[in-house]
Design a protein around this nucleic acid. Sequence first.
RNA 1: GGCCCCAUAGGCUAAUGGUAGACCAUCUCGUUUACACCGAGCAGACCCAAGUUCGAUUCUUGGUGGGGCCACCA
Length: 800
Amino acid sequence: MTKTQQKPKKKGYDFTEVEPRIMQFWEKEKIFKFNTTNTEKEIFSFDTPPPTISGRLHMGHVFGDAQQDFIARYKRMKGFNVLNPFGTDNNGLPTLKLVEKEKKVNSKDMTREEFIELCQKTIKEEFIPQFLNDAKRLGISADWDIFYSTIDRRSRRISQKSFIDLYKMGREYRTECPSLWCTKCQTTIAQVELEDVDKNTIFNDIVFKIGNQDLIISTTRPELLPACVCVFVNKSDKRYKDIIGKKAKVPLFDFEVPILTDEKADPEKGSGAVMCCTFGDQTDMEWQKEYQLEIKEAITPNGKMTSLTGKYEGMKIEEAREEIIKDLKNAKLLIKQEKINHSVNVHERCGTPIEFINSKQWFVKYLDIKEDMIKWGEKVKWYPEYMQHRYTNWVKGLKWDWCISRQIPFGIPFPVWYCKDCNEIIVANEKDLPVDPLEDKPPIKNCPKCNSSEFVPEKDIMNTWATSSLTPEIIKDLLKDTKIYNKIKNEPMSIRRNGHDIITFWDFNSILKSQLHHKKNPWNTLMINGWMLGKDGKKMAKSRGNGVAPQDTIEQWGSDALRFLCATSKLGEDLSFPEAELTAGKKTITKLWNASKFVFMNLEDYNDRKPEKLEKIDDEFLKHLDNLVESVTTHFEDYNYSYAKDNIERFFWSDFADNYIEIVKKRIYNESGDKKLSAQYVLYKSLLTILKLFAPIMPFITEEIYQIYFKKTEGDKSIHISNWPEFNRKAKISETFNRFVEVLSKVRHAKTVAQKSMNSEISLTLDKDTVKKLGETLQDLQDVTNTKKFKEGEFKVEFI
RNA sequence: GGCCCCAUAGGCUAAUGGUAGACCAUCUCGUUUACACCGAGCAGACCCAAGUUCGAUUCUUGGUGGGGCCACCA
């Protein structure tokens, strides 16, 4: 191959070279560093839900993170001292599963300490660096030095302290009660971790005997027969009038249960008679409480039948169900089977139907303060506003206190021991935190109640949200040794941004904890983002194959283009991955590059001077620019990044590139002195303004252009810490500019219709009124339309 | 069953009590002092019904469709 055949050097904008370089520049120069010594500057702080690291950054992260970053960059340019920390969530089940899979280990074969160590090591070395790199590559402007993990020492300490404080406040209690239980994960789960799944099942009509009389009971769960404690019928149900108060014999198990009445027994459903087992479902539990029914446990925590079930003991739930059905058939006690489809509550992580298992669990008590919780939600500024309904509806629907204990080996332990003799609860001293009761000794030698010296450690760990709900505390604690700490420690953070799917998780729990601890909300504002859906309008999922990997998109289109796409939909709304926006974004980037190149080609003799007097059309254009700045600023203030983007984009393409540049071309080429200088001044100023307005959305291209052309004259190290453009509220737009553009487009139309080129020479006739309106700008109009002969009269375009 | 959001051209979206503005795609024409990742231009849309109104895409109610949350689910 000869030298002449070498690949020609790319002359356009090459994001593959620019973006990684700019990314390194930001990091090296610490452009996004939170100033911890300047206590004067107003702070704008972000509390972001830390992503669970279970692989690489995905589109879901990108969509929300990008939207937050638009705001972070805007606020920074607005002059705020922006606190934009970054955290990762890795103290829960997903991390446990990930590490077990990745390291091919079983957590049960290891001590808790060993496993936690392995988790932290694996996550820290193998997952977090890659994840953070992806986030940096997207241009997330976080201060990477302010970093936490929800399992690190600090988080463990804060989480345990929160537990102890709430316990001392009387907000936490431990009790034996039926809890939502996953027999696969072998842990209690919270209401919010449930998912509905439609399942095909069989509705069985089973015969109970009342003396010689048959009573038909319909059930989907015959395996719970041994746990049956009574039968309910509806008072109004005439069929069963005579049997109320009598006893019914449970088939196969031959024990008798009373027949009671309750409004919840629906005569329309099944036979109208329902068996109550403790605990088959939530209604059973409510009945148990209401009627003080005996508690019978048919299922063990690992999903097997108990000794109560006699010959079925040790079978799995499904096996026992099949066996019992078989035995009922043989005994001729099963008279009908009907296939039905009903929805079942399952554990969202593993899909296992949940059971209610009686066990000792820790709870945060909050059902008594529902009214307060609703009020606290009202004090937050919600963007968009309607998202508050989701919070309020959730609080209104709460039926359980918050069960915060989990029976998994990995997580933050309860800082609790129990007296072996009297069960007295011993909590750790605050100064010893974090502790692991399995390893550490209790803070006292003898039980204060019974003087016993033997203690049993609590081996459960706390639910991950018990910790994640404390991220504002964790973030503040990271800054404990800095000058700025006093300024932030008692103030709510400025904003939390997260997806609408976790309003009931993080937002709710965070508000609750902050209010209980400090009687204050954790932040002033909530910014709720929607989801990035697949191209088919459905949630991106591996199983659907509609996922798009951000790494691929960035490689092919660049981060700016991907961010541009993320700015398409309104705040809070879901977006079906609009591939066309990548094209639009890329075009805009190229156009910015070329327009800048053009502007500076013509500014070589400019030297940053301001003309004595601006040409009329230039002055008018600046007023338009002023209006643009005003509207874009307003939109960003309301977190309406999509409107902001739309406004800038339109102005840049249409007003600036297609019109203004064309208008001043001739003047710049042919004139000198103020006439030329006026155009140069406005080109410089308007291009800089456009770049600044675009900077929050497309940080890389705007930084590159700034560095090449503007840095020398403007002086700021980076466009992202330069000042946001000011606007003049008095900028009233006269009719001149609009009339000018109107005539221009009419001439262009005429040329198109005549199939002439845009710079074909013409003879132009304009009416008197238009000429008057155009005033001094007439010459510019003649230049841009390439008018060689001009006269007054009825509008006409003639070709020469 | 209760609640929330959405419904505009082929796709994605905007504004508005007086019938709608972009962008992508299509089509036509043009193209050399920034840009064929270009320019100019044509064509194309307010889910249905009732009500309020001089007038509704916009407000109200109901319906239909899509998304979500909650409850029920023997």
